[in-house]
Amino acid sequence: MTTVVALVLALLATGLKDIHERNEAIYNKKALLTAIESYLENPAKDLEDEEVINIFDQQVQQIVIDHQGNQIEGVLAEDIELAKEKDKPEAERQYPVYVFNSPKGKVYIFSVRGSGLWDAIWGSIAIEDDFSTIAGAAFDHAGETPGLGAEIKDNPSFSAQFVGKKIYEDDGEYVSVTVRKGGAKDPEHEVDGISGATVTGDGVSKMLYSGLKNYEPYIESVQSSNKTSN
């Protein structure tokens, strides 16, 4: 009986492996596109699989950077898993950058990862080409409470708050964006928290602060190269 069971499962698993991988890739790409939804014609979740692949083929440039912000050749951003990078020593970590070329200019999508109340949370943060203004954000989680922490993904109005926030002060100091319990006080750098989800909200704040900080060297290097080319 064990042999039969093993055979059936092994066959099924190998037979469906390609479809699983394709589905997962599309799921992840859709999640990324949710962050730049305002630049797309249709909401990301209504996109057909082929459209998602088309957008990625034609408008998205995938870059991988090391912890000093230098571009690494020969690697695709979609092959980088932040969960694994977190276990590496800091000097070896690699970070994915997706550059979306829209008619309105370039949008840089950075991936961040942290922990919520129960389990991991992660997100994609799209930043305009001034490298400070957030163009959109999308979050996901492994096991936050439905109706409370899970609202970071389920409630579009939470992520919509991030649009237009700035991660740098006007004088160039890095401040990130904070989720504030009891309502945002600073219109440029804070968003409202979700009632009943304080820990998840704090997790999002921490994730954004440390996650986006990883991209600082890259941001600086792109900005300085932009200046010299101008």
């Binding site: 069971v5 499962l9 479809i19 997962e24 799921y27």
Partner: peptide, 29 residues
């Protein structure tokens, strides 16, 4: 023996669902 039977069927369901409707399989996790 019962557990082996159940576990096999559940794995079949899980693998199939992941191939057919990935979003729902993520929700049901």
């Amino acid at each position: 023996v019962q557990l082996v039977i159940i576990a096999t069927l559940v794995t079949v369901v899980d693998l199939t669902l992941r191939a057919v409707d990935y979003d729902v399989s993520r929700q049901l996790a």
